[in-house]
Design a protein around this nucleic acid. Structure first.
Lengths: 230, 230
DNA sequence: TAGATTGTTAATCGATTAACAATC
DNA sequence: TAGATTGTTAATCGATTAACAATC
């Protein structure tokens, strides 16, 4: 099926990244949500120079069932070998491809407040193959500054910038009151992914845009619920 | 069942907050995860001076089924009235109680890097009734500074501080390499809730501690998956 | 009272787990 | 070959939706 002696982390397979994997449409959200977690554990296994792993061993590390792991990987065609288990590097490359790491998606950060600036300096993007290129804000005091390597530009320049620089993702870290308007401008300018930290849900039905909402407040309240129960 | 003429937002009901609601153990995680979202929408309805709402109307606002809304609320005993619907303020107070808003949980932020400092200045805590009291770091350049109103203290003072100041929640915004050790110290010192931004899963089986993990990287990758599919 | 809408039970759907035949 | 472990089907479990009787 595949040659385990091959070096799966060669630059060719990493650079291509491609959306080539077997019939990926219609994989359930529950499975998709788990993929980044597999990615993290596999990265760690590679760091430890582990070459192969069985669904059983991985299940013990990750605190899930071996059955679930095999089912999950099989949504994408199955990456293992009977009697052997999974080749760690091969599996890592495959999951990287599915997740689009190494596609080098380009991102801007809209809103250069505390959270926006913190994200702008965060190594997370680099680790996940996402490339932030600029930040935008309305505040004249911030415009012209640099955060990490990122220039802070005026929000007035947004459309002009997007016309010049292909941008896949916009990170929304602006006040919720102006989130809807910003989202509309971004969608009109052709940005295809919104990573939304505003805490306000966005409706963009007219557009073919992916939205990932991060509700930090909801997460905090879930913790409070648990504490309240003790 | 309850008197709709009463002012449900009076200080008594808000201050008590209490864990008094009907049999709350064993409510499914799926329901719990939705409560903060109800809380947000109800807050908005109150802001709009809306007095009553039916499950049908709320379902259209929130893009879920009316059935689910009724089922969810009924996990806690049912807050509505046949033929009438739900009193917005009463429902809001009830959900606030369930979530422990107004219990004024006290929090510290461990790690005064970019993300820690951004969270320290974030109004989210105040809005959710959580009170941050201090930040901790190893970096001598940061120790002694103030972030918002929060003093940045030396991590060496952690145990002494916790012995003096009752603390419910620790926000972990330090490097993942030192997360496990910090978590252990916090648990030993009696902190009951960890809000974990380190991206590394924590194992604290020996202790009676609630952990809420925020995996920003996973969220970003979920978005990349969707983009990769387009 | 009649109309509306909940609370709640029953039916459906989806996701997880168990089991095992296929196969490396 | 025998042993191990996957891929995959079938069984179970839980969560969502539909339906409707209870009741305000």
């Amino acid at each position: 099926m595949h040659d385990f002696d091959q070096t799966y982390l060669d630059s060719a397979s990493l650079e291509n990244g491609g959306s080539a994997a077997t019939g990926r449409e219609g994989v359930s959200p529950a499975v998709i949500k788990r993929l980044p977690r597999y990615y993290r554990y596999l990265r760690e296994l590679i760091r430890q120079d582990k070459l192969r792993i069985s669904s059983r061993e991985l299940s013990q590390m990750m605190n899930v069932t071996a059955s679930q792991i095999r089912q999950d990987f099989n949504c994408f065609g199955g990456f293992g070998q009977q009697g052997y288990g999974y080749n760690v590097k091969y599996l890592y490359v495959k999951i990287s491809e599915i997740l689009g790491v190494n596609r080098h998606f380009r991102a801007i950060i809209v809103g250069a407040g505390n959270l926006g600036r913190a994200l702008g300096r965060n190594p997370m993007f680099a680790k996940r193959g996402v490339v932030p290129t600029a930040m935008f804000d309305v505040n004249p005091d911030l415009i012209g500054q640099t955060v990490g390597d990122l220039p802070v530009l005026s929000i007035d320049e947004l459309e002009a910038y997007l016309a010049e620089h292909h941008t896949d993702i916009a990170v929304l870290t602006l006040p919720k009151e102006v989130a809807a308007e910003a989202a509309l401008r971004l969608a009109r300018a052709g940005v295809k992914g919104l990573w939304n930290f505003t805490g306000r849900e966005l409706m963009l039905d007219e557009f073919d845009v992916c939205i990932e909402n991060v509700h930090l407040g909801d997460s905090l309240m879930t913790l409070c619920y648990e504490l309240n129960l003790m």
